[in-house]
């Protein structure tokens, strides 16, 4: 689980090392990555919403 989260966060940031990329691609199914990616996108959007709300109040 931690490995998947790390991969998704690295993708958000836009930088991943070649070693980790190879490890990630040895997983049997892409679905944990896709689901975590969608979930983290929602978390990011809500976080930006809260930040904007906090900054404008």
């Amino acid at each position: 689980m931690w490995r998947v989260l790390q991969a998704v966060l690295a993708a958000f940031f836009g930088v991943q090392s070649e070693r980790k990329r190879r490890e990630d691609f040895q997983q049997s199914s892409p679905w944990p990555f896709i689901l975590t990616g969608v979930l983290m996108t929602l978390v990011f959007v809500v976080a930006v919403g809260f930040l904007a709300h906090w900054a404008s109040s």
Binding site: F13, G14, V15, Q16, S17, E18
Partner: peptide, 12 residues
């Protein structure tokens, strides 16, 4: 060389 993770992290 192909990549340098540290430099890439810094310039991001």
């Amino acid at each position: 060389f192909h990549e340098n993770t540290l430099v890439e992290v810094i310039w991001t």
